[in-house]
Amino acid sequence: MKHDLILRVAAKLLIPFILLFALYVQFHGDFGPGGGFQAGVIIAAAVIFYALIYGVEAARKAMPDRLVETMLASGVLIYAGVGLMGLVMGGNYLDYFVLDRDPVLGQHRGIFWVEVGVAVTVSGVMLKVFYMFVSRGRDPE
């Protein structure tokens, strides 16, 4: 598939929009359908698409293994960190009301960061799993 001109051009055109849509789903999740899970999966899907068209090595160059592994762990840490922020600022664990002077704004902020954490972890895990399966298959026996 690497040398198919139409596929390559179409993919180049589509991938930015897929990523944009992922960001829209992520940040518009408060007001419409969407949120961290969906955004994470869509980001992973965009990179997998890229890998299918341009080959896994190119995708590895764009999203190196180290970055993906860091994403995997840092998502959970962001989530837990939001919880700890609640403790530090004088509330309970995962208590968003204290994150800002206005409790509603605090809730907003808490939900936002939690969703970011979820998205980062989910896309990291999906990508990592995909890489693992693919690199496994290309190993010569």
């Binding site: 899970f37 895990v125 999906m126 799993v129 693992m132």
Partner: peptide, 13 residues
């Protein structure tokens, strides 16, 4: 759903 796909990946592995 998300946990389901994670466990599916683990099972496939």
């Amino acid at each position: 759903i998300v946990v389901g796909v994670a466990t599916l990946a683990l099972g496939l592995a």
